[in-house]
Simulated assay, not measured.
Amino acid sequence: MPTPLPKLSAIPQEIAAVGDYAAQARARVDDNAWAYIGSGAADEITLRDNRAAFDRIPLHGRVLADVRGGHTRLELLGHSLAHPILLAPVAYQKLAHPAGETGTVQAAAALDACMVVSTLASCTLEDIARHAAGPLWFQLYVQPDAGFNRHLIERAEAAGYSALLITVDAPVAGARNREHRAGFHLPAGIDAANLRGMPQPATPPLPAGGSQVFDRLMAHAPTWKDLDALRAATRLPVILKGIMHPDDAALAVAAGIDGIVVSNHGGRTLDTQPATIDALPAIADRVGGAVPLLLDGGIRRGTDIVKAIARGADAVMIGRAWLHALAAAGPLGVAHVLRLLRDELEIAMALTGCATLADIRRQG
């Protein structure tokens, strides 16, 4: 590939929609970074279907509705949010832009968006918080060392994070063939900044006939019985991310979890899972409003947000949508994506006769 182009310093006219950022991002990162940013698991069927599933769902316009005074505000886990668009946790954001997570959080603040910070952030929790001016949630990948998990949670609490989001759908990495073919590696100067100094578990030799997956990679994976200890380690609301089955949603509610993110990890773990928007209705029916539901995966339009709320979500998370913009134009691009989506959401609400998010749910 040619040398990556410089980052954009202004938003050109040809970027009129969120989807326009993908090509701009590809031209501005090297092959190694793009293999990570763009890849899904295996044949990337779920990655593609997350987007395609939204396109298969129609919206029905309504006319002559009085939507004067409409708004996109909501209450979510103790926060009064201006809109239902959250920035999903994304690892190693310095792969996309030198500012990494500190640039993203500044864009979130400018557009009144809640940001969820990954365990695998390339900036420290504290540095990200210093640049924040809005709600921050901390996403935890449960580590083998229980003491280090508590240490991460305590750091997040001390830095002002207001919710703990535990990712439960990636105890092992998916078979991301695109990364393997590209020989993906973290460049010098980019690492998981918040895992520095973490004790490493002993790795005894595999027994004869042992499995690298079952006997090694999954040996320290969290299970339902571990949730009580994690909940006891924090005073924050606890959300589970990665629920795709109604039975797991019911188990989460029974375990006292405060919220659920319907997510297939952006198609990066188990390929051929259903699209999240297709999985959402059955989960919403099972949960029955007991806890807030969020959804991520494939959102590129304000109409997608309307469809998600109509099918049972309280809010949505976006990932690649803003990561592409970060790679193309830094914090300015992230802010632009949030502005585009909020504007499109309001347009779609007006044209479907919905003055509030509650109206979308009632019409859904």
Rank of each mutant, 00 (worst) to 15 (best):
P292D: 12
L280A: 06
D278R: 07
V262D: 05
I260N: 09
L293I: 00
T272H: 09
L236A: 04
T272V: 03
T276P: 01
K241V: 00
W224I: 06
P222C: 00
K225S: 15
M218D: 03
I299E: 02
A284S: 14
R286C: 13
W224P: 04
A229T: 05
D247Q: 10
D248M: 04
R268K: 10
H265F: 12
N264F: 07
G256V: 00
A290Q: 15
P281Q: 01
R286S: 13
N264C: 14
V238W: 01
G242Q: 09
L295G: 10
R300N: 09
V287Y: 07
A252L: 14
P281E: 07
L236N: 09
R301L: 08
L293T: 03
T269L: 11
G259F: 05
I299T: 09
N264H: 09
A254D: 12
G256W: 02
H220S: 08
A229D: 10
G259M: 07
D285G: 08
A221L: 05
A279M: 12
I299C: 05
P237H: 11
P292G: 14
T234I: 00
K225G: 14
R235F: 05
V261D: 06
A290C: 08
L294C: 02
P246L: 10
L236R: 05
I243Q: 06
A233C: 01
D271I: 10
L294D: 06
R286K: 15
G266M: 11
V291F: 11
A255F: 02
L230G: 00
G267D: 11
L294F: 11
A233V: 05
A229H: 03
P274D: 06
A254I: 02
A250T: 14
T223Q: 07
R300Y: 13
V261T: 08
H245G: 02
Q273M: 02
A275C: 01
L236T: 07
D248S: 03
D258S: 14
I299A: 08
D226R: 04
L240W: 11
L227T: 01
D296W: 13
G242Y: 07
G266D: 06
L270W: 05
L240S: 12
G302N: 13
R231S: 06
I260T: 08
S263G: 13
L293K: 00
G302H: 12
S263Y: 12
T223A: 05
P237M: 08
Q273V: 01
R301E: 03
I239E: 01
D285E: 15
L251A: 15
N264P: 10
T276W: 01
G289I: 15
A290P: 11
L230P: 11
G302P: 09
A275Y: 07
L227C: 00
G298L: 11
K225L: 09
A249N: 10
A275Q: 00
A279I: 12
D258E: 13
L227D: 00
I243A: 08
P237N: 11
G289M: 14
A275M: 04
A255P: 10
T276N: 06
R300E: 13
G289K: 13
D278A: 15
A255E: 09
V287R: 10
L280I: 08
A275E: 00
P237S: 12
I277H: 11
L251M: 14
L270G: 06
D285F: 08
